[in-house]
């Protein structure tokens, strides 16, 4: 069960969030120029050397992770045809709902995430209000909230599943 892709899914999301953070750092380090008049329209982005390398490495890693991620979902769907997962499903992939015990675990984990947001959202909103932060820090703040959401969910589910033994 601990190796179930739905249990591991928050770890994947956390990895993608970290990569997105690096992409945000690279892009906010770039200088952009937009020309728009009757004769021409152009938009250019210029990256300093370090940001260029960072962006290239991050995009490459994102691409590789995405391929592995798709393979994992395909494998899961082959092994569990009755619990098929899809990228496009509205319900979060990490929900475990095959019986009332699993629904209970999911509910406990979701409650912890909800409690986190009840405190974290006003806190972050207050920080944004008090400090004149750049676009990058606003993005990092949002990514931090998303990262914590998956981390809390994962820890709670693992806590229950690691206790289980036959």
């Amino acid at each position: 069960m601990k190796k179930d892709f739905r249990v591991q899914y928050p770890l994947w999301q956390m990895a993608f969030i970290i990569l997105f953070g690096f992409i945000a750092i690279s892009l906010t380090g770039a200088s952009s120029e937009m020309i728009q008049n009757d004769l021409e329209f152009s938009y250019s982005l210029q990256f300093p050397a370090l940001e260029s390398i960072l962006l290239f490495i991050t995009l490459a890693m994102t691409f590789i992770l995405l391929i592995i991620f798709i393979m994992k979902i395909t494998n899961h769907n082959k092994r569990h045809p009755q619990q098929k997962l899809s990228f496009w499903q509205i319900k979060p992939i990490e929900y475990l709902e095959e019986d009332e015990g699993m629904i209970y675990i999911t509910r406990r984990a979701a409650q912890k995430v909800y409690t986190f947001f009840v405190w974290a959202l006003p806190f972050v909103a207050m920080i944004y209000l008090l400090f004149n932060l750049s676009r990058l820090w606003i993005v990092i703040g949002i990514l931090f909230l998303a990262f914590m959401q998956y981390l809390i969910f994962y820890i709670e589910v693992r806590k229950y599943l690691s206790k289980d033994e036959d």
Binding site: M1, E98, D99, E100, G101, M102, Y104, Y160, L161, K163, D164, E165, D166
Partner: peptide, 21 residues
Amino acid sequence: GVTRQTIAFIEKGEFSPSVTL
């Protein structure tokens, strides 16, 4: 009709099953 994990939770008293179960 439940998973092994659910039986384990019930045995440990961590989860109270529904009337049906």
